[in-house]
Amino acid sequence: MKEISELQLPEDVRYAEDHEWAKSQGDVLRVGISDYAQDQLGDIVFVELPQAGDRLKKGDEFGTVESVKAVSELFMPVSGEITAVNGALEDAPELVNTAPYSDGWMIDVKPDDPSELDALMDRDAYLDMLKGSEQ
């Protein structure tokens, strides 16, 4: 597994405590899981995602991500309507491992309240959280 110093933690996304990231793209937020989360899970073999049109609240489970011997739930970083899901993950779940912030994205959400994004952590706060949990 990666050391914390080896993790990719881009500046242009915001992070949730459950290790999802969210990034503003026009009027939707794109959501995925962080490099830390994919590294902890190991080789991802399956991603279960909601359907476009589903409405979910912040903290609701929006899907699951599976490695060979573990299942992790995915939680909404903000409330809103799912406008798109990354269909490429159906055949290539490994994209979450290889490109967690780009091709491995999971859902697009039209947020009920765009300011909810600001409540998420920036890179430094997330890094502090990770360092804290390592101790």
């Binding site: 399956f46 599976e66 060979v68 011997k69 573990a70 299942v71």
Partner: peptide, 9 residues
């Protein structure tokens, strides 16, 4: 596909 099963889920 053991993630369906009781020892994991």
């Amino acid at each position: 596909l053991a993630t369906r099963e009781q020892h994991i889920r």
